[in-house]
Design a protein around this nucleic acid. Sequence first.
DNA 1: CGTCGAGTTGACATAATTCAAGTAAGGTGG
DNA 2: CCACCTTACTTGAATTATGTCAACTCGACG
Lengths: 247, 247
Amino acid sequence: MIASLIDQRTAGRLRLSAAELAFLASLEQRTLKFRRHQLIQPAGEPAGEAYVLRSGWAMTLSQLESGARQVRRLHFPGDMLAMPSLAMRHHAADVEAVSDVVVSRFRRSDFAQMFERFPRLTGLMFVFAQAERLVLGDLMAVIGRESSKARMAFLLVDILHRLRRIDPAMTNRFEMLLTRAQMAEVIAITPVHTSRMWSRMIAEGFIRPAGRILEIVDEPGLVALSGYVDRTEDLDFSWLPPSRDTR
Amino acid sequence: MIASLIDQRTAGRLRLSAAELAFLASLEQRTLKFRRHQLIQPAGEPAGEAYVLRSGWAMTLSQLESGARQVRRLHFPGDMLAMPSLAMRHHAADVEAVSDVVVSRFRRSDFAQMFERFPRLTGLMFVFAQAERLVLGDLMAVIGRESSKARMAFLLVDILHRLRRIDPAMTNRFEMLLTRAQMAEVIAITPVHTSRMWSRMIAEGFIRPAGRILEIVDEPGLVALSGYVDRTEDLDFSWLPPSRDTR
DNA sequence: CGTCGAGTTGACATAATTCAAGTAAGGTGG
DNA sequence: CCACCTTACTTGAATTATGTCAACTCGACG
């Protein structure tokens, strides 16, 4: 699962060794299921584990004292969840199931072995962590400086690109699993305003929903509107050390 | 420089070996100077280096197509700059000098050796990268969901805590090097509104400026107002592998 | 068949932006 | 050392994007 995602993100530029693959597989032994809206990992609990999302959508979010919620990151199959909490004594944010999901939980202590045994894999995880910083910063800039319409465009293009990377056969339709309120939590506007903007994007010909399926009609238009940049395309793995065992 | 910062962030919980210290020092051989407002590293250039900030303040920022600017992260002495760009073929964001600064530049290829030679240091860098994701998410939540007054409170407390970590003797005064416009770029409001909020926070007794020196009069009040959490205090290094050479 | 979560729409409120005019401070060249 | 110019900052008035409140519809589910 992680391994296949790595393949997608590296576009095959990096071939994992048998030992590396085995290590990654060892992180995904057990599986857990959660229902829509359930907490996969509550904030505040002692940290010591992280997750791989195997199916469904999830999200990491902040609950502010006011009760307002801000989604920090949407997660799709193959993504690793709660990784920042590996750095902490306590989980720093809630991780919640957007749809029914299947996840694998792994222990921090197992993950730590990677640092000693798999330098190249370690470098890869470092690269992914830095890339996450970038996309978070991108979203922050959009939330801080763009109109609600542009923010919604950003969200839609982001989902489209990320799902497409998982399934390259996907064209411009996907099942939208977020409610209006959840979209609002991602792009930092109210659910009511989200509803208005959604209608407007349909009226202006950017999107066309058919039941739960959303068709992205004008992808270039949405990209232009939102300034979306797909960071994955510029990732660089060429500088990482070789794996100790070649395959 | 990095080494002393690591000491501060780990609160001495992690003693670096001689070899680890030597490696860190090797990243800080040459020094470069930049003037206030100069670009230390422009976005878009081929990536292959990062920096250590040795003195002065800097910031990483996005320039949107509209011309709007959003600061992603403020940097203080000891911070590493442009680290996310290590993951990319091209630098992803501008890094700009807030004040006159001194930095050290190091090559990505030198940094890469760490993955093979210093597993514990690697783990430490991984922890720092994940911690950066957290604080970025915290700022995003504040920008997305809090009032301009709360955002300003957040900014001030953040600066205070980070400077205090560098100089534990510091109490509640520091030299504020940001202009109103720069504060506005961090907390995603306009310079005009920043000026109004600044005056209001003085009037309400939260802060007291005297020339360039800013006194934080009501730190608990600002923390309560902004929901600021100092993530550094909860960092966990206990799970990292041992260093290969003990000191 | 009733309840509940999700979504829509209208009317109104407001925080923050925009525009504009002006002051103050700091650096530079004559 | 003065005169000038630029950058930083402040303040008022008008505007607007988005939020808030509230009523209503719709469909799913037990």
